[in-house]
Design a protein around this nucleic acid. Structure first.
Lengths: 169, 169
DNA sequence: CTGTATCCTTAAAGATACTG
DNA sequence: CAGTATCTTTAAGGATACAG
C-alpha cells in the first residue's frame, strides 16, 4: 500500500500479526501451502499471481519463519514451519466465516480431519465452557504499554458515560 | 492495492472473506469495535487513520452488513452486527498467533470471558476430538467449481508422484 | 463531531524480458 | 523451472480544507 502506516506502534497482537501475514497474497499462499502446494510454479498457477510478487512473498514468509525453503536450489520446495502451521485455526476460522456469510453455506472447500469427519465451527472456550462473542472481554495484558492502558481507561470512562447519563445531569 | 486482482474467481471462502475484511484497517476497525469503540472520532484517534479512509471503511463495513450505523445522523454510533460478531473467533485466533509468535507470549491485550477467565487457545475439533494442524484435510466442497476440482485432482496426482517414485521407475 | 471533496504521493501490483 | 531486473500503471493511503 502507498503511504503505509507503521502498525507496530499499535501495541496489539492483531496488528502485529497483520504486519506479517496481513495481505491477500500472503494469506492465500499459506492457504495453498496448507492444501499441499509446494512449488513456485504451482503457487503461481494456482493463484494467478505475478512471479515477482510471489517471489517477494515467499522470501518474506521464509524470512519470518513461517515457511522453509528446501530441496535443490534449482527446484526448491516451500513448506510451512510449525509457526506457519499454527496459523491453521485462524485460517480455518476465516474460511468458515466466508463459508457461512459469503459462500452462503455452500463451501468450495471442505475441511475435515484425517478420517473425513468435518471440522466443527471454531468456538471460543474458557474454563467456564464456551464463550459467546457477546461475553468476550478485553483488558490490558502483561505486554500493554501506557498508550494501551490509557486507551482501555478511556474506553471504560466512555462506557460509564453513555449508558447512564441520568444522575449526572 | 494498485493493480488489484479480482479474487472472486478463486472459488475459495478464504479469498472471499479477504475481499470483505482483508485489509489492515478493516480488521483493526473491527477489532476496535469488539473492544467497544463506537464513534467515528474514537476509531480515528485509536488507529491514527485518516478520516477519508475511515469513512470509506465504515461505509464498506455497513454496506456488507458487518456493522450498523445507528443514532443521530450528526453523531452516529457504529456497532457490529451478528455477521460481524461472528468474526470473533477468527480475530481472536489471529491475535493469539501474534501473542505467541510476535509478541513473545507477552500479550498487549488479554482476552477473557465475562468472569475474567482466560479464553483458551483456539483449537480445531471434529467428532473425533481435537484435530491437529497435521491431520487436517481439505477436499472439494459442495460449492466447488470445475477449476477447484481439477486443482485438487492435480494436487493428488503430484502427491502420488513425489513421495513414491519407486515402483514407477 | 462527522463526515465529504481534492489533491498529492508512493509503493504495491502487474507485465515483460532475461538469466542460471 | 525458478527466479531477478525493469518499467509502467494505478489505486490506496494521507493531508488538508471545507461543509452540515
Amino acid at each position: 500500500m502507498p503511504g503505509k502506516t507503521d502498525l507496530s506502534e499499535l501495541n496489539c497482537s492483531l496488528a502485529r500479526t497483520l504486519e506479517v501475514v496481513g495481505d491477500w497474497w500472503t494469506l492465500l499462499i499459506i492457504r495453498d501451502a496448507f492444501l499441499g502446494v509446494r512449488r513456485f510454479g504451482d503457487f503461481q498457477r494456482s493463484l494467478g499471481i505475478a512471479k515477482n510478487i510471489l517471489a517477494t512473498r515467499l522470501e518474506r514468509l521464509t524470512a519470518s519463519g513461517i515457511m522453509t525453503r528446501a530441496g535443490s536450489d534449482a527446484r526448491p520446495t516451500y513448506q510451512l514451519t510449525e509457526r506457519g502451521r499454527e496459523l491453521m485455526p485462524a485460517m480455518v476460522a476465516l474460511m468458515q466465516w466466508g463459508d457461512k456469510w459469503v459462500s452462503a453455506n455452500n463451501p468450495p472447500v471442505a475441511v475435515t480431519d484425517d478420517k473425513g469427519r468435518a471440522v466443527a465451527p471454531v468456538r471460543l472456550r474458557s474454563a467456564g465452557g464456551e464463550v459467546s462473542a457477546q461475553s468476550v472481554r478485553f483488558r490490558p495484558g502483561p505486554g500493554a504499554n501506557a498508550r494501551t492502558r490509557s486507551f482501555f481507561r478511556e474506553l471504560e470512562a466512555a462506557r460509564n458515560d453513555a449508558p447512564a447519563p441520568a444522575g449526572s445531569r
